[in-house]
Deep mutational scan, measured.
Amino acid sequence: ENVVSAPMPGKVLRVLVRVGDRVRVGQGLLVLEAMKMENEIPSPRDGVVKRILVKEGEIVDTGQPKIELG
């Protein structure tokens, strides 16, 4: 899985990584606000952040790609 998608609709509060960052499985990639709760979205695997496809403040839909890992 190279693309991390939104598990639920919500607002991107914070992006916790930058392009080029090495990430580990379970590491937080971003914080999504859904139903007035903050949810940290974890990396599904070890890898390197290739692209960030969302911006802080953006509203995302379920299944929308957010971060691409290499």
Rank of each mutant, 00 (worst) to 15 (best):
I52P: 01
M8A: 08
L16H: 03
G10D: 00
R14Y: 06
L32H: 00
A6D: 04
V60N: 02
V12R: 01
E1C: 15
L16M: 09
L13E: 01
V48P: 02
P44I: 05
G26M: 06
N2M: 14
V25A: 13
K66G: 15
D46G: 08
V48L: 09
G57H: 05
G10Y: 04
D61N: 13
E38H: 11
L16Y: 05
A34V: 14
L53T: 03
A6P: 04
G26Y: 07
V31Y: 04
K36W: 11
V17L: 02
I59A: 08
S43V: 02
K55N: 09
G26I: 04
I52Y: 03
A34Y: 15
V23P: 00
R45D: 04
K66H: 15
V15E: 00
R51M: 08
Q27Y: 04
V19W: 04
G63D: 08
A6F: 08
R51K: 12
P9G: 12
I59L: 13
E40W: 12
L30Y: 07
V31K: 02
V31S: 03
G70F: 15
P7E: 10
G47S: 05
D21H: 06
R14T: 04
L69T: 02
P44W: 07
N2C: 15
K11M: 09
V4D: 03
P65H: 09
L30I: 12
D61W: 14
V60D: 02
G47F: 04
E68P: 03
E56V: 14
R51E: 06
S43H: 02
G57D: 05
R22S: 12
V3S: 07
V4I: 12
K36E: 14
I41L: 07
G63C: 09
V12F: 00
L29W: 01
R14F: 05
V54G: 02
L69R: 02
V60F: 04
K66F: 15
R24H: 12
G47D: 01
S5M: 12
L30V: 11
L16W: 01
V54H: 02
L32K: 00
D61L: 13
K50I: 15
L32W: 08
Q64A: 09
K55T: 11
G47P: 01
L16I: 05
Q64V: 08
V4C: 09
L53D: 03
I41D: 01
A34K: 05
V3Y: 14
E38Q: 11
V15P: 00
G57M: 05
G10M: 07
V60R: 02
A34F: 15
R45H: 10
K55Y: 12
V49W: 00
E33K: 08
V31C: 06
V49A: 02
E33M: 12
